[in-house]
Each structure stands twice: as structure tokens, then as C-alpha cells.
């Protein structure tokens, strides 16, 4: 593999200490403390509006905590070796290959190395036949595959995924889950939100459960699924409407 590894300094664990986030008078995340170690698959669960997406954005550095601390092992405020895949991928109005190359160019990768890595990514993710097609004209599943491929090409140590399959059909969902599992096998730390219980059971090693902006449970997946501690999580697992 000709993959270069410029961001080799370990950035994990990521730790949050009593982190809160609010907009105006509304407190949207409250007093969350959590450590995300390297090499785990953490699934973030909770009802709609519980704050899962915000939590992910806060970890990724798209928003900053209003109070509390977010620290990486590498001591950078926002390390580069991380990537995020969104629920609805926003792809640039360019070709598939150019979408892959874009973040690499931003990162200052040389043209030749970039071309190598793009070619390798196209092959690995089966995107070669559509390399020159406009990314915006791909199907939903293909677009999400490209978004994952783009994230992978950025060689992250940690990958955040925000409900990456909620807009996809079952076959595309299966494909995306397979890719996430493979990434984890390669040693990429996964933090992913979902409200799909089956998906959580299939992928999770750890579970964090959010309820109204608070993290009310955080434990190993087996323990969580065997018997959650809080009534809210129990109700969620039972399929009740929780609010």
C-alpha cells in the first residue's frame, strides 16, 4: 500500500469533561462527561431531539462547548485525523474523483500522491466506473458510499457517522454497515448515532444513551442491551415513545 500516514500522532482518547452546549436560553447538551478510547465502536442512541447529532458535532469540533472541556490526546484543539459522514451527504458539485481529491488537496497532499490515493480509493470502494460522473447525480446509496470513501481517504483515526443509513433502503444500509465494520477492523475508532435498534445491536461495542441533552447511560453494549439501568432506556428498547 502506498498510503502515506501524515497524521500518525495518536489523537485518542478523546475526553469530554462536564461539557454543555446551549443556544440562547435553551440548553441542548448538559454536563456530559465521557472518554472515547482508541479502537472502539461507540453507538450513540436516544429518541429524536435527544441531542445525538449535536453531541457528534461537538465531538468532531463543528461546534464548541459553552462550558466544560473537550481534549484530545494530541493536545491540538481540532486534530486533522478525524472525519465525519452526515445523514444526508453534501457532495461538491463536481465529479466523484474530484470529491475524493478535495479534502486531500486541502490537507496539502502532493498532486501525485493524491492521484494515487484517489485511484486506490476508487478501486477499493467500487467507484471506478463512476469516477468521472457528477457526484450529485448518483443514487442515495452511491452518494453515501462516496461520502464514506471520502472519509476513509482522509485516513482518520476516528470516524463520526450521523445516522448514515436513515435515508437509505435495506440493501444500501447493509452495504454501509459492512463498510463501517471493515473500517473498525482496520483500527478506525467509530462513533455513530442511530435510532435503529437492530443496527445498534449489530455494530456496537459500547453504547451511550442520551435523553433530553443528558447522557444517562454509558456502558458496554452487551450490558446495555441485557438490561438498561434507566427507565427511559428500558422504554426506548421496548419500543415505547420516549420524550
Amino acid at each position: 500500500m502506498s498510503r502515506m500516514a501524515p497524521h500518525t500522532q495518536p489523537i485518542l482518547p478523546l475526553s469530554l469533561e462536564r461539557v454543555s452546549y446551549s443556544i440562547g436560553p435553551a440548553t441542548l447538551l448538559q454536563d456530559i462527561s465521557l472518554t472515547i478510547p482508541a479502537g472502539r465502536r461507540l453507538l450513540v442512541m436516544g429518541a429524536n431531539g435527544a441531542g445525538k447529532s449535536l453531541f457528534l458535532r461537538l465531538c468532531h469540533g463543528l461546534i464548541d462547548p459553552v462550558s466544560g472541556r473537550r481534549t484530545w490526546a494530541s493536545a491540538e484543539p481540532r486534530p486533522k485525523a478525524q472525519a465525519m459522514v452526515f445523514q444526508r451527504p453534501v457532495l461538491l458539485r463536481r465529479s466523484v474523483a474530484e470529491n475524493l481529491a478535495y479534502p486531500l488537496a486541502l490537507d496539502g497532499m502532493e498532486r501525485a500522491a493524491r492521484a494515487d490515493l484517489v485511484a486506490q480509493t476508487l478501486d477499493r470502494f467500487g467507484l471506478r466506473p463512476m469516477a468521472n460522473r457528477p457526484a450529485r447525480l448518483l443514487s442515495g446509496g452511491e452518494q453515501q458510499r462516496l461520502a464514506l470513501a471520502r472519509a476513509w481517504a482522509m485516513r482518520p483515526q476516528i470516524l463520526f457517522l450521523d445516522e448514515p443509513t436513515s435515508a437509505l433502503d435495506p440493501s444500501a444500509t447493509r452495504m454501509i454497515e459492512g463498510m463501517v465494520a471493515q473500517f473498525a477492523d482496520e483500527g478506525i475508532t467509530i462513533v455513530m448515532t442511530t435510532h435503529n435498534l437492530g443496527q445498534a445491536r449489530r455494530l456496537a461495542q459500547d453504547v451511550a444513551f442520551l435523553h433530553r441533552g443528558r447522557m444517562i447511560e454509558h456502558q458496554a453494549a452487551d450490558t446495555f442491551f441485557a438490561g438498561p439501568e434507566t427507565p427511559e432506556a428500558r422504554a426506548f428498547l421496548a419500543g415505547d415513545l420516549v420524550w
Partner: peptide, 21 residues
């Protein structure tokens, strides 16, 4: 905005990207 930030682009780098797109 958040996607470009996620991909590592600052405001200054966003300008040519937005103009081209």
C-alpha cells in the same frame, strides 16, 4: 458550511470552493 469545516476547509479556503461550485 459544516461539511467544508469537517473536510478541513477554513473560511478562506471555502471561497474558491464556493465560487467554483
Amino acid at each position: 458550511q459544516e461539511h467544508l469545516l469537517s473536510l478541513g476547509a477554513g473560511r478562506l479556503q471555502a471561497v474558491p470552493t464556493l465560487l467554483w461550485d
